[in-house]
Design a protein around this nucleic acid. Structure first.
Length: 207
DNA sequence: GACCAGGCACATC
DNA sequence: GATGTGCATGGT
């Protein structure tokens, strides 16, 4: 059933080419910056960081809070997100010496626990980093995913993150490519057809 | 001007 | 352990 849904979405929208970033490090920053925020707001912040030559963990770690906050202002919650970025950077530096390869070689379960231990990294952010920055096979659950599947009565209204994630991972092949594209397609579907304030959608391609 | 967007931590009951 | 609240900009 899930793979049927995936096929239909893929046929309708085509490949989504996620995550929109040049490097794994940029994915990780974007994952924090996009928390409860429109992606277009994140693009502006990433642009600012790039323009200031700060898409580098060592340089980014050194700049003062105020400076970083002003650069990511467009993403909202900029004081909190500045702290979260700093928390993430010290994790990245201390445990992995800012070495993506070293992270990729780490066991996925261990890595997920380490990411979740960072203040400001919850399940969705951790899983986005695992899947989209490190190519680890894990399904990312977000607000759209829940909304789409509860509206189609395929999930309980009160299902928690782990339950939704299990629902996908137990019913799909354990493939990075599939998890990548499926989640991206669900976000695309959500943006275009499953908005919060439009509870009934006649044109939904899943119907 | 209200409502929402690719969450999360923390307080309080 | 469930429920509520603060965080904040930019687009519709």
């Amino acid at each position: 059933m899930l793979s049927k849904i995936y096929q239909r979405l893929y046929a309708y929208f085509g490949p989504q080419h996620w995550w929109p970033a040049d490097t794994p490090f940029e994915v990780m920053l974007g994952a924090i910056l996009t928390q409860n925020t429109n992606w277009s707001n994140v693009e502006k912040a990433i642009y600012n960081l790039k323009a200031n030559n700060l898409l580098d963990p060592f340089r980014l770690n050194k700049i003062p809070h105020k400076k970083l906050a002003s650069l990511i202002r467009s993403t909202g919650y900029y004081n909190i997100k500045t702290k979260r970025l700093k928390e993430f950077l010290s994790f990245f530096l201390n445990l992995y010496k800012c070495d993506i390869g070293k992270m990729k070689r780490q066991d996925i379960g261990m890595l997920r626990e380490q990411l979740l231990a960072i203040k400001g990294v919850g399940p969705e952010t951790a899983d986005s980093i695992l899947l989209y920055a490190l190519n680890k096979p894990i399904f990312v659950v977000d607000a759209y995913t829940k909304r789409i599947f509860t509206r189609h009565r395929l999930l309980e209204e009160n299902a928690n993150y782990a339950q939704v994630q299990n629902f996908f991972m137990q019913n799909l092949k354990n493939e990075v490519k599939l998890f990548n594209e499926f989640h991206a397609l669900l976000v695309r579907l959500g943006k275009e057809f499953c908005l919060k304030n439009k509870p009934r959608c006649q044109k939904c391609p899943l119907k």
